[in-house]
């Protein structure tokens, strides 16, 4: 059996009458980048907080780095909360060292590593600036560095990309890969599919407090059939009748779902009819579409209060 960094089953958390998390299970293999995807209010943050032992689940079991008491392993964990927070009057270097010290890293080591980390993140010039002087994105990077300064075995990031510009998002992706290469397991939540698609080796999709999908990104994309985009050489209305039922005309092109038997027979017919082929692409739907399909169809239907 593959070693798991984090596992949980049947996690339930009620806030008043609402079941924010309703029987979530998760299994994160060691050394992987694992994404928890879900729409806003799906229960991602609550799930992460339960996994980390910040809050206790009402029901269910969880194991974190081999311990059933997540707090016992907190020194091996790094965490970037969804709501970013740093002491505004602290200097960057100190703030990072402080976060390391909270996880048992000696202050002196923390300060030294903070300098190196800031340097490599392109923030070396700000090491002795106070947090309040930084832009929001920079402060967020500082906090992220603070969550890895003690070189944790497990790094949990809650919506790490939100609020970052594309350059900093790129830096963050590099940093996450760097941590994985160091041997850490990374568990992060997001509702931005592009990052998940690029980074994650496995994903869970949570919606309405329940797990809707678990697997690799490719498996998720495979939930939807391939899509074809065909541009005839000589366009004509008659083409519509030859294509599958869901064909849609977009400008001079047609978009339709790949037929079950493959596209070859269709192409032969189109060429025989004299329409010709001036363009053809067959593509896997993105994670975005898969996500909308997984979440949209099921969760939004039986979770009317999340829309309201």
């Amino acid at each position: 059996m593959q070693q798991l960094a984090v596992s949980a089953s049947g996690l339930v958390k009620r806030f008043g009458d609402r079941r924010a998390v309703d029987g979530v299970g998760i299994a994160v293999p060691k050394g992987l980048i694992y994404g928890v995807l879900g729409p806003n209010g799906a229960g991602k943050t609550t799930t992460l907080r339960m996994l980390l032992g910040i809050i206790e689940p009402d029901e269910g079991e969880r194991t974190l780095l081999g311990s059933r008491f997540p707090r016992d392993r907190s020194d091996q964990v790094g965490y970037l909360p969804e709501e970013r927070g740093l002491y505004p009057n602290m200097k960057c270097r100190e703030a990072i060292a402080f976060m390391g010290a909270l996880r048992g890293l000696p202050w002196a080591t923390g300060r030294k590593r903070a300098g190196e980390l800031l340097e490599s993140a392109g923030l070396g010039h700000a090491a002795d600036d106070k947090i309040r002087k930084l832009s929001k994105g920079m402060a967020q990077l500082v906090q992220l560095l603070g969550s890895v300064v003690h070189e944790p075995e497990l790094l949990v990031l809650d919506e790490p990309f939100s609020g970052l510009d594309p350059v900093n998002q790129e830096r963050l992706e590099l940093l996450i890969r760097g941590q994985r290469d160091r041997g850490a397991t990374i568990l992060f939540s997001t509702h931005v599919m592009a990052h998940a698609e690029r980074l994650c080796e496995r994903i869970s999709v949570i919606a309405g407090g329940k797990v809707r999908f678990e697997g690799t990104v490719d498996e998720a994309r495979a939930l939807l059939p391939l899509r074809a985009r065909y541009t005839p050489h000589h366009d004509a209305d008659a083409i519509g009748a030859m294509l599958p039922d869901d064909a849609v005309r977009e400008g001079g092109s047609w978009r339709f779902t790949m037929p079950d038997g493959g596209i070859e027979a269709l192409l032969v017919r189109l060429i025989d009819a004299g329409h010709g082929i001036s363009g053809l692409s067959i593509e896997r739907p993105g994670l975005h579409d898969a996500f909308v399909r997984i979440v949209g169809a099921e969760a939004l239907a039986d979770q009317p209060e999340t829309i309201a």
């Binding site: 907080r49 980390l52 910040i54 707090r71 907190s74 964990v77 965490y79 909360p81 709501e83 970013r84 927070g85 740093l86 002491y87 505004p88 976060m99 909270l102 996880r103 906090q143 603070g146």
Partner: peptide, 13 residues
């Protein structure tokens, strides 16, 4: 108010 509590609560009891 400055949201540091989440970091503290996650790291130490």
């Amino acid at each position: 108010s400055n949201k540091v509590i989440e970091i503290l609560a996650a790291a130490v009891p």
